[in-house]
Structures are given as structure tokens and as C-alpha cells.
């Protein structure tokens, strides 16, 4: 591990001041960053520990929740309001990592974990545009069974590993950010970037900016929501494909729907085409399948991962059918 300076911030103002140093990074639970530092893939000159910042989950005026960025993943998953009003979020968190990792990882850190693939870690033997911009990508023509099928580029085909973020994408979460130039908020979908020609830049945050709060808007649709993760073993593995969905029916028709996918792209993938196809239509297995087809018209499989397209379509169809069945 490359040497670094360590400091601990007592409040947001102190975190921003310390985080303004050159080559500084904020440190949450460390479950991704410490691992990458040990591999010398990440080499920050300074770490600012933000795990002692406020870690509250508060009711937002007019409904919704305000989740402090230092809240641990377990604390968010077990919170009564999340379990009852946003079950998709509890389910997604509990489908990720292990209990020990969930106890350590912060909500803000979960959002900012690296989009990654095995070639990203293979510093000694592989080319990676994320690790060394401009170097090339050995995953595109390599073993790419678990890589992206949507929104990838010639430069990078890695997938975002978070489960929690897929739920947040479906729930229209809002990310509160503070930096040297003040506060701003952005829709969750604008936080992460698609790789384009700069896969090393994974978010739209400016240097030194800190995620302080994740806001969940009040959404009655979220009460009927769930998360399904398909993976190679039944626990403690990244998703091949995952689906976060919420559904509201009116008679036999889809009144409203939220749909997001994990394991398919460089960022949590909000399935807007499928949502559009579903809204106002019949709540039938045929319609659910047709909506899933619509989402994947632009899918671009690699050598080993074409199976994900059919897997994702079937998973979407099954999850929507499950939610529709619950509604009847």
C-alpha cells in the first residue's frame, strides 16, 4: 500500500476542508477502497475518514426519507420505514455482499465503489482503460461472461456491482452533494456515467465533492416493490442480472411502474424504454415480455455474455408477474 496521510472529519465542513487536499479521497467503510489500495490500483495521498459524520435516517417533510451518507448498509436495510415503504431497497441491500461487509460499508461508499471487472484488478497481466487510461481493454476479447450488454463502449465493458444502487435508481433517489462551491442536488441517474472514452471517470462529482445525503422521495408505488438477483451461487456473488421493480395496477392495467437493472451496464440501469412500454398497458405476461424486449433492442453482447439478454428479459417478466400477482 502506498503511504498516505490519515485524518478523521468531525463534520461536513471539516471533511470538505480536508478533502480539498491534492490526491485526497474520502474513506467510508473501506470495503472497496482499502482493497484497491492494497493492490496499489488506488494510490491516494490522503484519506479523510468520514465514518463519524452524522449517520441519521430522518423522515423528510412531506414524506420520503433523508439518509445520511455515513449510514451503514445494514442500518438502512433494517430500518422499519425502509422495510415497509421501500422494500425493494431493503431487499437489494440484503442481496449484496456479506453481513460483515454490509455492517462496514456506508451508503455513500456503496454509491462510489468502483465499477470493475477482473481485468481491472489484474495489474500485472492485463490492459485496462479504467486503471491506465488509453492502455486498451483486455476484457472485450477476453473472458467476458459477466460483462455489460447495455451502454458499454470500445474502452470499457465492466458492470457496476452495487445492488443497492439498482434500487435507488428505480426509486428516483436524489443525491445531495457538498463541495467547495456549495451544495447541489442531482437525480440518482445523473450520478454515474457510462464509460464512453473515459471509463476512469465513473461519476459526475467534481474533485473534493462529498455526498452528504441520499433522499428518497415519497412514493406510494414503492410499497409494492421488490428486487430479484440472479447469480452463479445463492449468496455472496455479484449479479449476472438483477431487477428492481415497483408496480401499481389499476384494474388489469399498469397505472405506473419503476424498473431498473443491475449487472448489465457500467452504471445502475434505469429501464425507461420498458417503463414507457408498460405504462397504461395491460398487466399480462405477454405485455411484460414485450416491454423487456423493448429495453434490449440496442443490447450488444460480447463473446460470452449473450445469455444475459434472455436472462434479463425473463427476470423482468417474472418479477413484474410476481408484483402483479401480489396486487390481485
Amino acid at each position: 500500500m502506498t503511504p498516505f496521510d490519515y485524518s478523521r472529519a468531525g463534520d461536513v465542513a471539516e471533511a470538505l476542508r480536508l478533502g480539498g487536499a491534492a490526491q485526497a479521497k474520502f474513506l467510508g467503510g473501506g470495503t472497496n477502497l482499502v482493497d484497491l489500495m492494497r493492490e496499489t490500483i488506488e494510490r491516494p495521498a490522503a484519506l479523510v475518514d468520514i465514518t463519524r459524520l452524522p449517520a441519521d435516517i430522518a423522515e423528510r417533510e412531506g414524506g420520503g426519507l433523508l439518509i445520511g451518507a455515513a449510514v451503514r448498509n445494514t442500518a438502512l436495510a433494517e430500518h422499519p420505514a425502509v422495510r415497509r415503504r421501500y422494500p425493494v431497497l431493503s431487499r437489494a441491500i440484503l442481496a449484496g455482499a456479506s453481513a460483515q461487509i454490509r455492517n462496514m460499508a456506508t451508503v455513500g461508499g456503496n454509491l462510489l465503489q468502483r465499477t470493475r471487472c477482473p481485468y481491472f484488478y489484474d495489474d500485472a497481466g492485463s490492459r485496462c482503460n479504467k486503471r491506465n487510461p488509453g492502455q486498451g481493454c483486455d476484457a472485450i476479447d477476453g473472458f467476458n461472461r459477466n460483462h455489460a450488454i447495455l451502454g458499454a463502449s470500445e474502452a470499457c465493458v465492466a458492470t457496476h456491482p452495487s445492488d443497492m444502487c439498482v434500487a435507488l435508481a428505480a426509486l428516483d433517489a436524489v443525491v445531495h452533494v457538498e463541495g467547495g462551491h456549495g451544495k447541489r442536488q442531482m437525480p440518482f441517474g445523473e450520478l454515474h456515467r457510462l464509460p464512453g472514452d473515459r471509463p476512469d471517470q465513473e461519476t459526475t462529482l467534481q474533485p473534493g465533492e462529498l455526498i452528504t445525503v441520499i433522499e428518497l422521495p415519497s412514493q406510494s408505488i414503492a410499497a409494492r416493490s421488490t428486487y430479484r438477483k440472479v447469480r452463479d451461487r445463492s449468496s455472496y456473488a455479484f449479479a449476472l442480472v438483477s431487477v428492481a421493480a415497483a408496480l401499481k395496477l389499476d384494474g388489469g392495467k399498469v397505472k405506473d411502474v419503476r424498473l431498473a437493472l443491475g449487472g448489465v451496464a457500467h452504471k445502475p440501469w434505469r429501464a425507461l424504454k420498458a417503463e414507457q412500454a408498460l405504462r397504461g398497458g395491460e398487466a399480462t405476461a405477454e405485455a411484460f415480455r414485450a416491454a423487456a424486449e423493448a429495453e434490449f433492442t440496442d443490447a450488444a453482447p460480447l463473446r460470452d455474455n449473450a445469455f444475459k439478454i434472455e436472462l434479463a428479459k425473463r427476470t423482468i417478466t417474472a418479477v413484474l408477474a410476481e408484483l402483479a400477482g401480489d396486487a390481485r
Binding site: R8, G30, V34, D35, L47, S98, Q100
Partner: peptide, 21 residues
């Protein structure tokens, strides 16, 4: 998980945790 310990009663993996934290 071989390095699991309890910190204030919560289980964590001590390998990914900086002692200074």
C-alpha cells in the same frame, strides 16, 4: 470471513478495515 471480529458488538472483516479507524 476468516478475519471476522466484533467491533462494538458488530461483526466486520478486520482485513479491510484500517486499525486507525
Amino acid at each position: 470471513g476468516a478475519c471476522t471480529v466484533l467491533v462494538d458488538g458488530e461483526r466486520i472483516v478486520s482485513c479491510l478495515s484500517l486499525a486507525v479507524q
